[in-house]
C-alpha cells in the first residue's frame, strides 16, 4: 500500500468530496468536506485497515473565510505501516462536525480537548464538556484572537525590571 494507491482508492470511492492532495514530508494529506468526515474515516478504518487513530486536533486560520477552523485527524495503518492526515474545515460561526467517538474511543478526550481550546462542536459526542480549562471559561483560548500577553507592553508598572520608560 502506497500513498498513490490510497489516493486512487479514495478518489474512486469519494470523488470530489476529497481535495487538496499533498504529501508534506512524506505523509499523505488531504481535505474532506466536513459533512462527510465520518464516512471517509470509516472507510479508511474498515476497508483500508487504518485501525489506529494517532491524533486528532484543530487549527485556527482566522483569514480563511467560512473555513476558519480546521479539524485534523491522523490515522495509522499498523499492518502496512503507513499514515494519513485528513483535514475538515468548518466555519467558526457554526463549527459543527460529526464526532468520531463511535469509530475510535481515542477521539473522546481528543475531541473534548479540541472543543475546549477551539470551540469545535462535535455533534453526537457523549460528553462534550471542557477538559483542561475551568468550566466557567467563556472563550476558546487557542483561537488566534486570544493573544497572549505582549512582552513589549508598556502599561505595566515594572520599570524596576528594565521595561519602564524606554522612550
Amino acid at each position: 500500500m502506497t500513498n498513490e494507491s490510497i489516493q486512487q482508492q479514495l478518489t474512486d470511492k469519494f470523488g470530489d468530496v476529497l481535495s487538496g492532495w499533498d504529501t508534506p514530508y512524506g505523509m499523505l494529506t488531504f481535505s474532506t468536506r466536513a459533512a462527510k468526515n465520518t464516512e471517509v474515516v470509516g472507510y479508511l478504518k474498515n476497508e483500508l485497515g487504518f485501525n489506529f487513530m494517532t491524533d486528532l486536533t484543530a487549527v485556527h486560520y482566522p483569514d480563511r473565510k467560512d473555513e476558519e477552523l480546521c479539524v485534523v485527524y491522523m490515522l495509522h495503518n499498523l499492518i502496512d505501516n503507513i499514515r494519513v492526515r485528513i483535514k475538515a474545515y468548518v466555519p467558526s460561526a457554526q463549527p459543527d462536525i460529526q464526532t468520531m467517538v463511535d469509530l475510535f474511543s481515542t477521539a473522546n478526550w481528543l475531541e473534548r480537548e479540541a472543543y475546549d481550546f477551539f470551540g469545535v462542536n462535535f455533534v453526537g459526542h457523549p460528553n462534550l464538556i471542557r477538559i483542561m480549562n475551568v468550566d466557567e471559561m467563556d472563550y476558546f483560548p487557542l483561537r488566534k484572537e486570544y493573544e497572549m500577553e505582549d512582552p513589549t507592553r508598556r502599561d505595566k508598572d515594572d520599570e524596576m525590571f528594565g521595561r519602564g520608560n524606554w522612550q
Binding site: 485501525n51 487513530m53 475510535f104
Partner: peptide, 10 residues
C-alpha cells in the same frame, strides 16, 4: 485491557 480495546483507545 485486551489488544482490541487498547488499539481503539489509542
Amino acid at each position: 485491557i485486551n489488544a482490541d480495546r487498547a488499539l481503539n483507545y489509542g
